[in-house]
Design a protein around this nucleic acid. Sequence first.
DNA 1: TACGGCATGTAATCGGTTACATGATTTA
DNA 2: TAAATCATGTAACCGATTACATGCCGTA
Lengths: 177, 177
Amino acid sequence: MSDASLGPSSFIVLGFLAQHGPATSYELKRWADQSVGNFWTFPRSQLYAEPQRLVGLGLISESQEDDGRRRRLYTTLEAGRQALQTWLKAPAGTGELRDPGLLKLHFSAQGPEGTAQALAAEQLALHRARLADYQAMQRSHPESGASLTLGMGLRYEAVSVDFWEEILAGEQASSEG
Amino acid sequence: MSDASLGPSSFIVLGFLAQHGPATSYELKRWADQSVGNFWTFPRSQLYAEPQRLVGLGLISESQEDDGRRRRLYTTLEAGRQALQTWLKAPAGTGELRDPGLLKLHFSAQGPEGTAQALAAEQLALHRARLADYQAMQRSHPESGASLTLGMGLRYEAVSVDFWEEILAGEQASSEG
DNA sequence: TACGGCATGTAATCGGTTACATGATTTA
DNA sequence: TAAATCATGTAACCGATTACATGCCGTA
């Protein structure tokens, strides 16, 4: 079927349910924050809405506690596992940086002199901090299980630091800025 | 005023109008595709809707042709230039990679053996192609005017190629470069 | 004057975000 | 048992995407 009504957040839910077993929205959010959250964020409410949709599509099942918090526990169904497999096999296509900092940089010539440099200073601090975080993560669990995507995060932050340093220094090509 | 109802697409419009002068939605889209489009995409219709909002906010003005295509020409107002300046001065915050390829990679362990490698092969081709594009752009206009953001694009694609090569080879330990 | 491509717009829908609102556990 | 924190959910709104629809213009 390869249902077209499934988006990235659908597969985040399906993926975690397949990986960790039945879970509540709260647990899904916790897992997301600690893993994919480093390169793909969304508000908490998304993980309350999205599972509902998947239940409606028959991909996962829901069971609500009768007592206590009456929270909903979601479980993958066979159709859900199927959908995940299909998605994993399909080409991913390309992403985009979508970085507000780059957007500002592009228009920085519209501002007063030094606009790009001020921006660069801010961005440098942010990227250096994240780089340090990632390096710490890499050190803390250097084993096989470490998230595969960490390698990309490290590279990305490293070149970001390099890039913004260059902007800060004000040396691009030749003359005017 | 620093109106909170302005988003990135608002400033794309304001930025281009400030940079190039009065323009139609069509021209805005052309400029966007050739510059910021490399790291920030959106559908064409956005550049018909967004200027309307800005007119409503009193940041730009609109004038429609009486004959011919009766197209709308947008012009920045002083308030619009103000808003752009305020935005340029403000911190940009952080972006995120938001790459579907990384998302799939994260869940690739849920698929059959070789899932990550197949993904890596696809991503490698895409990133190599883009890298070549950017290198060509850099060569074609090496002068001052070349987009500042191109430098980031080049770095990003280069490390992406490096990263996916590593995944393809199946070696996770990313120490050393 | 017919045709193909360029250009221009609107409408419906929806995923995602913000804001609102409350209940359950734990601990002091 | 009161306070603090953890946890859970809903509703309204809005930016963004998809799909629909049409009109002008150059040119053959």
